[in-house]
């Protein structure tokens, strides 16, 4: 079985400073991969590198096809939806307009309308607020909107950047549940970047530990959960 996303020797730069030093990882077809690490380890950069938003070297294969060096706009068209750090909602547009933008590259209008109902089914609160400006939503609702907008693409791979950041635990649980549902029912692969290692390892099947731009540990999520170092440093027990 070929992996959905295969990354080999990925390096990335901001200006002159190198942030990633040749990292490799995979997301299996229909799998969930978590990348863990402290602040500044390069987690966000890893996602940005996959989306073609930073200068990179190395090989990134999506469903067997090279996507490194491609423009962000083209990578989106292949079916990779990126929920960025800070959620990236269009605060001056309505909730529904945000969702429609999620399906901007799709040409199958009838199914887009159906998908709109589908994501409202996942997030009923968004249906209530569909005419409201996105900027007036609470943090949790904005995170839901960001996830919902990504789903409107009908992605094959979902990139999630710290979905738990700044949210109450019960909201985080709700969001993670929905990610799991989407993954199971629609076979969408997920690449998740998290500081909340406990939640992430619970959800993921594979996990990588990133320290200052290098992968220092890799394996099945269950294994990492048992690992002494990870437990002490990231899980806190």
């Amino acid at each position: 079985m070929t992996a959905l996303l295969e990354v080999e020797g990925l390096t990335a730069f901001y200006g002159w400073s190198q942030v990633l030093h040749g990292i490799s990882f995979v997301v299996a077809q229909g799998g969930i991969t978590a990348i863990l690490g402290a602040n500044g380890a390069g987690k966000t950069t890893t996602l940005r590198a996959v989306s073609g938003m930073v200068r990179t070297a190395g090989v990134v294969r999506f469903a067997g096809q090279r996507i490194d060096g491609k423009a962000t706009e083209d990578i989106v068209r292949l079916g990779i939806a990126h929920v960025p750090e800070g959620r990236g909602t269009f605060v001056n547009l309505t909730v529904e307009e945000n969702l429609r933008l999620g399906a901007y590259v799709r040409r199958d209008k009838a199914r887009v309308a159906a998908d709109l109902d589908r994501v409202y089914g996942y997030f009923p609160i968004l249906a209530q607020r569909r005419r409201q400006l996105a900027g007036t939503l609470s943090g949790g609702e904005q995170q839901m909107l960001a996830l919902a907008r990504a789903l409107m693409l009908r992605p094959r791979l979902l990139l999630l950047d710290e979905p738990s950041l700044g949210l109450a635990p019960f909201v985080v649980r709700e969001i993670f549940d929905i990610v799991r549902t989407i993954n199971r029912e629609e076979g969408v692969g997920v690449l998740l970047v998290e500081q909340n290692a406990a939640m992430a390892l619970h959800l993921a099947d594979r996990a990588y530990l990133l320290e200052t731009g290098r992968v220092v540990m890799a394996g099945a999520a269950a294994e990492l959960r048992q690992n002494e170092t990870v437990r002490r440093a990231y899980l806190g027990y």
């Binding site: 989306s51 938003m53 962000t72 706009e73 989106v76 068209r77 939806a81 990126h82 960025p84 990236g88 909602t89 269009f90 605060v91 001056n92 547009l93 307009e97 429609r100 933008l101 999620g102 901007y104 590259v105 907008r149 693409l153």
Partner: peptide, 20 residues
Amino acid sequence: GLAMRAAAQNPVSSRLVGIR
């Protein structure tokens, strides 16, 4: 028209939904 408004507001997010 929606894409143009989006691009004016938030270019980074716009690229992430595929707007040129």
